[in-house]
């Protein structure tokens, strides 16, 4: 699968309610070791309710500069959440469906994030 096809796709929960769009895909480099880097497995998807994509990622970091970009971009990406691979029921060409009782996690990249 080409990842660009997944970005921007609508995300629905199990009863068909639209939750947002896929803004980003999060990988973690902890798979089978290779010669240089380990395999990067898909940890989950970042879903954004109000925007089709993510821009500069201020909603995932604690950066405050340059004013007023962080505030504006955090507002644009408000409500973004991370859903783990285990909570994804189906990935389609035009939609992603989550499992019943999925958990929305903070998309922050580290503890300093919002």
């Amino acid at each position: 699968m080409i990842l660009g096809d997944l970005l921007g796709v609508d995300v629905y929960n199990d009863d068909g309610t639209r939750l947002g769009r896929v803004a980003d895909a999060r990988f973690v480099v902890d798979g089978a070791p290779r010669q240089l880097l380990a395999e990067a497995r898909l940890l989950g998807l970042v879903v954004s309710p109000h925007s089709a994509s993510s821009f500069l990622g201020y909603e995932r970091t604690g950066l405050q500069q340059p004013w007023p970009l962080p505030s504006l971009l955090r507002w644009r990406h408000r409500g973004s959440f991370l859903v783990l691979w285990e909570d994804i029921a189906m990935i389609g060409a035009k939609s992603v469906r989550l499992r019943e009782g999925y958990t929305a996690y903070s998309p922050a990249l580290d503890s300093s994030g919002p």
């Binding site: 990842l3 970005l7 803004a23 980003d24 895909a25 999060r26 990988f27 973690v28 480099v29 902890d30 798979g31 380990a38 990067a40 940890l43 989950g44 970042v46 994509s53 993510s54 990622g57 909603e59 995932r60 408000r78 409500g79 973004s80 959440f81 991370l82 783990l84 958990t103 929305a104 996690y105 903070s106 998309p107 922050a108 990249l109 503890s111 919002p114």
Partner: peptide, 20 residues
């Protein structure tokens, strides 16, 4: 609501966001 979300379970490897 965003601030109330729990952080994801910790993982051992480095995190890479595709877009970022």
């Amino acid at each position: 609501a965003h601030r109330l979300l729990a952080p994801p379970p910790p993982v051992a490897g480095r995190i890479l966001d595709a877009q970022l």
